[in-house]
Amino acid sequence: MAEALLSLRGVETHIGRYHILHGVELDVPQGGLTMLLGRNGAGKTTTLRTIMGLWRASAGAVRFEGRDITRLATADVARLGIAYVPESMAIFADLTVQENLVLAARSGPPRAERLDRIFARFPALRRFWTLPAGLLSGGQKQMLAVARAIIEPRRLLLIDEPTKGLAPAIIANMIDAFRELKDGDTTLLVVEQNFAFARRLGDTVTVMDDGRTVHHDTMDAFAADQALQQRLLGLSMDTHQ
């Protein structure tokens, strides 16, 4: 397995009086795509938000490229080359597609070659370039959310349920785009409930339950063990498409 780009050791997170994460241990290998799986309420989204500094870890350590980033502000985490696509997508509905992408580019207007790569992955964004983002379909909004995250080169992408509510044709488009990203220089950590999507794209997998990480494996090994899937997820990846 490749060296870890991101690692969490003993991470605890409290939100108000609620204790959400209980000693999370996670390694995201350099390159490829790690799937973070688990039942609803297992703590997957909280893990992503804790990595980004949106919620502060109350104990433990988050390290990126060997550097402790546990106490960094979210903006400083982003400057290290980490981008986050939340389940809500968090696009600016009143701004055009173009304006959304320009705002996401820290170093000024996006370079033409970068835009060409994004349009190749998500052709709809070129078609609706001057349209307010709020008028896009759900799948197009998700494309825009991912495009905003990669408008500049990123070392690590954290993506929360990218296929939720999307039509099969849009999911197929997402699979192609994510495969191209992971085959490049970008490492991905993805929370997903669509197990067909997870199985096709995941290189490694971590399973969470009740705020804890309970299993780590290659995706091939995990996908081959239906009894383990049933025990950890309550269903089989073969029967849940």
Rank of each mutant, 00 (worst) to 15 (best):
A4W: 02
S7L: 13
R9F: 08
V11I: 07
T13I: 07
I15K: 01
H19Y: 05
L21R: 02
H22L: 01
H22F: 04
P29H: 06
Q30D: 09
Q30H: 03
G32I: 06
T34L: 05
M35P: 00
L36F: 02
G38N: 08
G38Y: 08
N40P: 03
G41I: 08
G41S: 04
A42K: 03
A42N: 09
G43F: 05
G43S: 09
T47V: 09
R49H: 01
T50N: 13
I51Y: 02
W55T: 13
W55Q: 13
R56S: 14
A57G: 01
S58T: 15
A59E: 01
A59F: 00
V62Y: 05
F64K: 02
D68Y: 10
D68P: 11
I69C: 09
R71W: 05
L72H: 08
L72D: 10
A73V: 06
T74S: 09
A75R: 11
I82H: 09
V85P: 01
S88Y: 02
A90E: 13
A90F: 10
F92D: 02
D94P: 08
Q98M: 08
L101Q: 02
A104P: 15
R106K: 15
S107E: 15
G108L: 14
P109R: 03
P110E: 06
A112R: 15
A112D: 14
A120M: 13
F122G: 03
P123Q: 00
R126S: 12
L131W: 09
L131P: 04
G134R: 13
G138C: 03
Q142N: 13
M143E: 12
R148D: 09
A149V: 12
I150H: 06
I150E: 06
I151A: 05
L157I: 10
L157D: 00
I159G: 06
T163S: 15
T163C: 08
K164W: 14
L166E: 05
P168W: 12
A169C: 14
I171V: 06
N173M: 15
N173P: 09
A177H: 02
A177I: 03
R179H: 14
R179V: 11
E180H: 15
E180S: 14
K182C: 09
K182I: 08
D183T: 10
D183L: 12
D183V: 02
G184L: 03
D185S: 14
T186K: 08
V190N: 03
V190A: 07
E192C: 02
Q193I: 09
Q193N: 14
N194I: 05
F195R: 02
A196H: 12
R199L: 02
R200F: 05
G202N: 05
D203V: 00
T204F: 06
T204W: 07
V205Y: 02
V205P: 04
T206M: 07
G211K: 05
R212H: 09
T213W: 00
V214L: 07
H215A: 08
H215L: 00
H216Q: 14
D217N: 01
D217K: 00
T218D: 01
D220E: 14
A221W: 07
A223L: 10
D225S: 10
A227N: 11
Q229I: 07
Q229N: 10
R231T: 15
L232W: 01
L233I: 03
L233G: 05
L235D: 07
L235W: 12
S236A: 15
S236R: 11
